[in-house]
Amino acid sequence: MRLTRRDRLFLFAPLAFLLAGWLVLPALLGLLATFSTYSPFATSVQFSGLANYAAVVRDPLFVAAARNVAVFTLVAVPLELVIGFSVAYMLRRPFQGRAALRVLLLLPWLVSPIASGVMWHFLFGGATGIVDFVLGWLGRPDMPSPLGDLRLALLAVIAVEVWRMAPFVTFLLLPSLASIPTERWEEATLSGASWTGRVRHVAIPAVRPLLLTITMLLTGLSLGTFDAVLILTGGGPGTATVTPALYSYNRAFGVNDWPVGATSGWLIAAAVLGAGLIYVRLSRTKVAD
């Protein structure tokens, strides 16, 4: 239908009001504040140029956080995609109980990052954990919790996040994979394609735009990792699992260093917006061919 001006006002005003007041305005005010000494507790505000950015980038803790989140994103996102895709691929044909299985598989995603942090704290370590139970069955000695190990802590955090998010990827991919017409699979099989061939030439092309969208969401989520480490490790041991979001939060609300907290928060936004530009560009080229 053709929309009049009044129609459009009615349609867009609620969202515009909501986003402007509770997302865009705070984000832009925050951006402005990063170029000043602004803080809710300060009596006077001065323009400070890029001083806040320099302070953040020179802070070894932030550098460690940026490194951790880069590793986290580069390892967790591909793993979530591959595992999520594989499970969805296995479930693509209808069978008795698939609907129930699909809901059961969504359960890890329904657990909040905080709850999963509490849970894995106990499962990783100690007398009641799942890791020592399995090791005991294999006749191996107990292992101290990887969360307290400098080298293993980040990997453990990544493993927990993959456990939580891969099922969500399956959930998002399954309807599209399941709706690929049976003939397409048969054609591929008849033409002698192996299972890798079927994945590459039948499954992937059918879900490519979807995969791109999911990658964008997962990347944003990873770059903002906060509650997944808050309980599990609190950023430790040392700086092994600190993330930029945790750093920003601690700066702004822990030690009341508002300008540095807000500035590092904006650096997260910049990274996500950069990823967003790549996403928009890639989706355009996909449409062209």
């Binding site: 986003l19 509770w22 997302l23 305005l25 705070p26 984000a27 005010l29 925050g30 504040a33 809710p40 969208t213 964008m216 969401l217 990347t219 944003g220 989520l221 770059l223 903002g224 906060f226 930029p244 979001a245 920003s248 939060y249 702004a252 609300f253 508002w258 907290g261 807000a262 928060g265 904006w266 997260i268 936004a269 996500v272 917006l273 990823a275 967003g276 996403y279 928009v280 989706s283």
Partner: peptide, 24 residues
């Protein structure tokens, strides 16, 4: 593109703006 912009916005972690949001 506008719709894709919404997806990018949906991917934006809350940490990017909650500090000024709490002040506001």
């Amino acid at each position: 593109v506008v719709t894709q912009g919404f997806l990018v916005l949906a991917s934006l972690p809350a940490m990017a703006y909650v500090i000024p949001l709490s002040d506001l």
